[in-house]
Design a binder for these strands. Structure first.
Lengths: 147, 147
DNA sequence: TATTGTTATACTCTATAACTATA
DNA sequence: TATAGTTATAGAGTATAACAATA
């Protein structure tokens, strides 16, 4: 950003959300750089670790991305050695995507780094303010899904 | 989104910010549809109206976008009849971008519609909660710019 | 030489359509 | 016929490099 944004922009919720997200994405990317992945890829690993076994399509649904997007995402994570595809025995159309040992280790370390980065990002609000913000955002998303 | 996102995602600040922003962008786009522009284009009109005269480059700096991005943005707004380019007399390298009568009218009406849409989006938090969220986001952006 | 606007180009993220293999 | 994965392709949105006009 070149200089301070004018009030006519910082009074817009859309502007605030967009630029807050951009700033956080950059901060998290910096924190995750040593682990060789970004926040989006880490979220994929977290989803795969939380529920097992997941097919590519099931993982894509959890993440809210298209299955064609998931192909590229798994390609990258497989190239990096964090996951492996294997054909499901029960239904040979499905790829089960599972974490490798490296994937599991990286997930643990990177999740700690992400948590630290998020806490630092939210530090200006204080601990209570940070929890409040997260709660508010959750409430908005939940409300939106019902509408 | 296909179904509820799992807790492993809704506990991530990045996920919350991204999807809150997506939901708001969609809500604002719906509200602005009758006026023939989207939230980003409306923000350009608002910046141009707030400070006069602005060259393309100056407007781009206020908005935090590249000058090449600004070219396309002004092209679209000019095609829609909301703004006009004219050469600056003082410095003939510069395009002064000014609102047309239609641009000014549309800005007023669309800004009211945007405000209504944002208030409705934030309604689950109550008036006090909504103000608090906006204040928190402003605080985060200000803090981030200083780091 | 530097700045402003422009064009050409490319890169990221995402989705749609069509293909393959399996069911 | 329908589903899972894949590929090709295209559309936003954005940025970098190079050029013309002007300073």
């Amino acid at each position: 950003m070149a200089g301070e944004p004018p009030d006519v922009l910082t009074g817009r919720l859309g502007y605030l959300l967009k630029h807050t997200q951009l700033a956080l994405t950059a901060a998290v990317a910096r924190a995750l750089e040593p682990f060789g992945l970004d926040g989006r890829e880490l979220a994929v690993l977290a989803v795969l670790a939380a529920e097992y076994p997941l097919s590519q399509l099931a993982a894509a649904e959890r993440l809210g991305v298209d299955r064609t997007t998931m192909v590229a995402l798994v390609d990258v994570l497989e190239d990096k050695g964090f996951v492996e595809r294997r054909r499901s025995q029960e239904d040979r159309r499905k790829n089960i995507v599972e974490l490798t040992g490296l994937g599991r280790e990286t997930l643990d370390k990177a999740e700690r780094a992400r948590g630290d980065a998020e806490r630092e990002f939210l530090a200006p609000l204080g601990k209570a303010g940070a929890d409040r913000l997260v709660g508010d955002l959750r409430a908005l998303l939940t409300a939106d899904r019902r509408s």
